[in-house]
Amino acid sequence: MTAPPSGSGDFSKRDERWQIRVRGLQKTFGPQHVLRGVDLDIERGRTNIVIGGSGQGKSVLMKHLMGLLKPDAGQIWVDGEDIVPLGTQQMGRLRRKFGMVFQYAALFDSMNVVENIAFPLIERYHLSRGEIMERVRDLLKRLDLAGVTGIEEKFPPQLSGGQRKRVGLARALIDRPEILLYDEPTTGLDPVAAKNVDEMISRTADDFGVTSVVISHDMASTFRIGDRISMLAGGKIIVSGTSEEVLASRLPELREFVETSGVAAAAAGAHP
C-alpha cells in the first residue's frame, strides 16, 4: 500500500508523472469542516478514483480541482501552476484544460444535443458551423450515439440516463481537454448502464489520452476502471494506491467501505 501523499516539496514545475498535486486543502461551510487537510496526487494519463461515503466532501474536493471553489487553506498545482491565487480570467484559461462530466450530466435544458455539445466551441472560438458540426458528429460516432435516431435534434428530457451521460461526456470532450473530471458517473443508473458508463470512461481515457479523475462511491465500478484509488474520509485522504494496494489496506474505514459494498471478493478475484 502506498501511504497517503504528504510533504510540501517544490511542485511549481511540471511533473511527468503527477498532473495535479493537492496539499493541505481545507474548506469550511459554516460550522461544517468538510476538508481538513487533503493531500492528493493525480497521475497523468491514468484513471484516478476518489472514493468515500456520502457527505465526505468528494464533490467539494473536485470543485476545488477545477477552481469552482476557493479553499480556506492549502494549495493545488495543475501542471506546476498554483491555481488557488488565480483571478477570474486566468482561471478561465486554466479551465480549458478541464472537462467535467456532472453527476446528472447537467445538460442545458433549453438546447438540443448538438447545441449542448457545441456549447464550449461556440463560447470559446469563432468556428464555422461546418467545422463545429464535423467535430460534434465525430464525437457522437465515437461515443456510440450516432446510431440513435434523430439524436442531434433531441432535447435532454428526451434522452435516457445513459445517453445523457454520453452527451455530457461529448460536451466535456469537444474542446479536447487534458483532464476529465467525473462526478459520480454511475449514480442513478442500472447495473448494465453503469457498466457501459465504466467502459465509456476506460475507452475515453485510452482513445483520448486524458487524465481522468472520478469521484465515486460505487466500489464495483472503482475496481473495474481505477488505475489509482484514493479514499477520502474524515476530511482527509486516508489511503492512496493501486487497487491491489488499497484492497490490502487494513484501515478500518476502508475495510468497512469495501466489505459493505460486497465487492471485496469480486475485486480480489479480478486482481489476484
Partner: peptide, 18 residues
C-alpha cells in the same frame, strides 16, 4: 432555480462562462 439544482449553472462556469 432548476438550472442551479441540476448543476447547469456550475456547468456554465466550467466552460469559463460568467
Amino acid at each position: 432555480g432548476s438550472m442551479r439544482i441540476t448543476e447547469q449553472i456550475d456547468a456554465l462556469t466550467t466552460f469559463a462562462v460568467d
